[in-house]
């Protein structure tokens, strides 16, 4: 294959990564933006999403699309419920104190990961894609499902954006984000907003996982790398900025796809991690963010 098609393939793969990453990072960014806390267990919510997707798809025999559709509905709901529960039981009692929250979500990470290992096991298991079609390009065939992921992600991002800017719920969230005390004074139940946002963030991670699981199997350690990448995206995009997050996801996803096709993935990860740390040190508002308020 010549270099051009090779690059096209890398870019397509990168776009798929970017699409899923954007969804997941959006959840993390939403939680950080509104609640001002960092959820280290976000990657585990993603993993749970994939595991539950496998489980719910295995309940239904018949056309694979049925199982997938069930997973698409059930998985984000269950994960959101788990997140809601952890918010009520733990985070709220810590008053969302940022450092204590990080410690607590680390604890959550360990628990979820271990439980997944105990009950789901160490194997990687696939979920069948809802449809099996290959698009014939002149140089290679490409899975239509992967393109559908990109489309679904774009749709969901736009829906999130509309939800945040055009609906009453979005207004309430933005009010809470800009000043929780004032919001409380105006009768917004800040407490409940936090719970919903935390659940929503986790649900988005689960949704991203359901989309990816037909092309990447469900495994109990699968949350680690995406967590790191989402951090990278959220930090480079500017903490809590929706537009920055999407742009950064595109940038990271594409470069990850292209770099790891040509270089050692460990080296790529190493350099990316270091780069993000340095961005935080020298430009804490992110590469695309504006200066802190």
């Amino acid at each position: 294959m010549a270099f051009g098609p090779y690059l096209l393939l890398a870019s397509l793969e990168g776009l798929v990564t970017a699409a899923v990453l954007a969804l997941m990072a959006l959840g993390l960014s939403l939680v950080f933006g509104v609640m001002r806390v960092v959820n280290v267990a976000h990657g585990e919510f993603y993993m749970l999403g994939a595991v539950i997707a496998w489980w719910s798809a295995s309940l239904i025999s018949g056309h694979p699309a049925l199982g997938f559709l069930l997973a698409l509905v059930v998985s984000p709901l269950i994960v959101a419920a788990i997140a809601l529960l952890s918010d009520r039981l733990v985070l709220r009692r810590l008053n969302y104190e940022p450092q204590a929250t990080i410690v607590a979500t680390i604890g959550l990470l360990y628990i979820i990961q271990q439980l997944a290992l105990t009950f789901y096991g160490p194997d990687a298991r696939p979920v069948q894609a809802p449809f099996d079609m290959r698009l014939a390009l002149p140089w290679f065939g490409y899975s239509a499902y992967k393109l559908a992921i990109i489309a679904a992600s774009i749709f969901l991002i736009i829906a999130t954006w509309i939800g945040l800017t055009r609906t009453k719920a979005g207004l309430v969230m933005r009010a809470t984000q800009s000043d929780p005390d004032t919001a409380q004074a105006f009768g917004i139940p800040v407490d409940r907003v936090y719970a919903v946002v935390f659940a929503l963030g986790a649900g988005m991670a689960a949704l991203a996982a359901v989309l990816i699981v037909p092309i990447q199997q469900a495994h109990y350690l699968m949350g680690q790398d995406p967590l790191l990448l989402s951090f990278v995206v959220v930090i480079i995009g500017g903490l809590g900025s929706l537009r920055g997050t999407v742009v950064a996801a595109l940038f990271i996803g594409l470069s990850d796809g292209i770099i790891s096709m040509f270089f050692s993935p460990t080296l790529a990860k190493m350099l990316a991690t270091l780069l993000v740390a340095l961005v935080l040190v020298f430009r804490p508002q992110g590469l695309f963010g504006t200066a802190a308020r």
Partner: peptide
């Protein structure tokens, strides 16, 4: 010198990322 330019949550993440870089280096 680098990480102490930040504080709070940013400090936590920066130290985490430095350590992760170190870890990946031991693998590389």
């Amino acid at each position: 010198i680098l990480a102490l330019r930040t504080k709070g949550v940013a400090f936590m993440i920066v130290t985490l990322m430095f350590a992760q870089t170190f870890y990946l280096a031991t693998l590389y």
